[in-house]
Computed example of a mutant assay.
Amino acid sequence: MKYNIIQQKSYEFALKSVAIYKKIITENKEYVLSKQFLRSSTSIGANIEETIGAQSDKDFLSKISIAYKEARETHYWLRLLKDSHYISENDAIEMLSLCDEILRIIGEIQITIKNRNS
């Protein structure tokens, strides 16, 4: 199987998100914001997986665009969880950095596909 950097990074990000979610609900007993974060952060990788099975460039671009939107939403929830003190500064910095990296990679993929179809 060929190594797919965005597939791997989004999966690792999802795993870290699950760990942070567990920490938030255990330590802070916060269930609403943390669930929103969990849903969007794990959805990034799920949508990346769907791109791998895309049937056309149009289908691929649609799925990768959804993954990008989920990553943007996750970035929002991370900032909100940090600023409302539900996650530590260190966890927030690490996760925001990883999220930014995922956003950059997905953005580059979108540009490549759009240029290929121009």
Rank of each mutant, 00 (worst) to 15 (best):
N4S: 13
N4W: 14
N4D: 14
I5Q: 12
I5P: 11
I5M: 11
I5F: 11
I5T: 13
I6V: 15
I6S: 01
K9I: 04
S10E: 00
E12M: 11
F13V: 06
L15N: 13
L15W: 02
L15V: 12
K16T: 07
K16D: 15
S17D: 09
V18N: 00
A19Q: 12
A19M: 11
I20C: 00
Y21S: 00
K22A: 05
K22F: 04
K23L: 09
K23C: 07
K23F: 08
I24R: 03
I25K: 04
I25W: 04
T26A: 11
E27M: 08
N28V: 03
N28M: 11
N28T: 08
K29A: 10
E30Y: 00
E30I: 03
E30H: 05
V32H: 14
V32M: 15
V32N: 15
L33W: 11
S34Q: 07
S34A: 15
K35G: 02
Q36D: 10
Q36C: 09
F37E: 00
F37G: 01
R39N: 14
R39W: 01
R39M: 09
R39Y: 09
S40P: 03
S40Y: 00
S40A: 13
S40H: 03
S41R: 02
S41W: 05
S43M: 05
G45T: 01
G45K: 01
N47S: 02
N47T: 01
N47P: 01
E49Y: 03
E50D: 01
T51M: 01
T51L: 04
A54W: 01
A54D: 03
Q55G: 11
S56A: 08
D59I: 04
D59E: 03
F60E: 04
F60G: 03
K63V: 06
I64Q: 02
I64N: 05
S65P: 06
Y68A: 10
Y68F: 15
K69T: 07
A71I: 04
A71R: 05
R72M: 14
E73W: 02
E73T: 06
T74C: 09
T74H: 04
T74K: 04
H75R: 14
W77Q: 07
W77T: 04
W77E: 07
L78Q: 08
L78M: 09
L78T: 08
L80M: 15
L80S: 09
L80T: 14
L80K: 14
K82Y: 13
K82G: 09
D83V: 11
D83L: 14
S84M: 10
S84D: 07
H85K: 14
S88L: 09
S88Q: 08
E89A: 13
A92I: 06
A92H: 09
E94Q: 15
E94R: 13
E94D: 15
M95T: 06
M95G: 06
M95Q: 12
L96P: 09
L96V: 06
S97A: 10
S97N: 14
S97K: 13
S97P: 01
C99L: 08
C99N: 15
C99K: 07
